[in-house]
Amino acid sequence: MTSEEEYAHAADYNSAPLSPPKPGFKVSVQHLNSWFFEKKALKDINLDVRDNTVTALIGPSGCGKTTLIRSLNRMNEMTLGARVEGKVYLDGTDIYARGTDPVLIKRRIGMVFQKPNPFPTMTIYDNVAAGLKLNGIKDKKLLNEIVEESLKGAALWDEVKSELGKPGISLSGGQQQRLCIARALAMQPEVLLMDEPTSALDPIASSKIEELIHELKRDLTIIIVTHNMQQAARVSDYTAFMYLGELIEYANTKQIFENPDKELTERYISGKFG
């Protein structure tokens, strides 16, 4: 049986009726659909994410992983031709409800991208403080405190505390990614979305980011897109396997990697396609 046939015969994970978010879940996605112009990218996604956990999204390129996480903080609205239908709840509040402020949502749900993207003309300090200043924080003492705590939270403070006036782009690739994490942390988010945050990094820098993820989940709920099966197994508590825009299987990571319910999941995990 081909992967497409297996997919067509997979039990429909996304059959849950629309209902209030369950207690204990930070993010609840219900019947989420997404289009880019006429192309449907997400098909009736349902996903409940527990607080203070790491959830990995895995699946072949083009299966909708990045579209999904960009939909979780309304970032897809910035893309020409993008359209979203369905519900995304953050602590029981629908982030797509009329009157909900997208800027506030982006503060509560931060994002780190695949390629480190520090602001090229800004110092290390100003990279972290930029969002705070845009939100009207002018108190120098408060800014200093938040910058220091954010850099510590990103495990970068000890490496840069004497170089805060240097350009952010002067740092190594791994340090730049941790700087971007510090920039996100400065806004004190409740959820952190990470889109393949180590794909452009060497193994040592990747290991530091993975260690950092373990530390951050004490205070944050983290959702990470990764193509690295070993990384997903190492860092995540739960794993969601996506294929052709649908969520095929979602369970604790040990089950997904050792005893998946769906044959399609097993074939992808074992490298038989993808």
Rank of each mutant, 00 (worst) to 15 (best):
E6K: 15
H9Y: 12
D12L: 11
P20A: 14
V29N: 01
L32F: 05
N33P: 01
W35D: 02
F37K: 09
E38T: 13
K43I: 10
I45K: 13
L47M: 13
R50G: 08
A56N: 09
G64R: 05
K65Y: 00
K65S: 06
T67F: 06
L68I: 04
L68D: 01
I69V: 14
I69N: 03
M75R: 00
T79K: 04
V88H: 04
D91N: 14
V103C: 01
I105Y: 06
K106C: 09
K106W: 03
G110W: 01
V112W: 04
F113I: 07
K115G: 00
P116S: 04
N117Y: 02
P118H: 08
T121C: 05
I124N: 07
Y125W: 15
D126A: 14
D126F: 09
V128Y: 02
G131T: 12
N135Y: 09
N135H: 15
I137E: 11
L143P: 04
N144I: 06
E145K: 14
V147Q: 03
K152L: 03
A154R: 07
L156H: 07
E163S: 15
L164F: 12
G168W: 10
S170V: 10
S170W: 15
L171D: 12
G173S: 05
Q175F: 04
Q176F: 05
Q176W: 05
Q177P: 12
Q177T: 07
Q177W: 09
A182P: 05
A184T: 12
L185C: 05
L185V: 04
E190K: 13
L192W: 08
M194S: 08
P197N: 02
A200I: 01
L201E: 05
P203M: 12
I204S: 07
H214A: 15
Q230A: 15
Q231S: 12
Q231R: 10
A233S: 15
Y238V: 01
A240S: 09
F241H: 05
M242F: 08
Y243L: 08
L244F: 10
G245R: 09
E249Y: 06
N252I: 02
T253S: 13
T253R: 07
F257C: 12
F257Q: 11
N259H: 06
K262I: 11
K262W: 00
E263Q: 15
Y268C: 10
Y268Q: 10
S270L: 15
F273P: 14
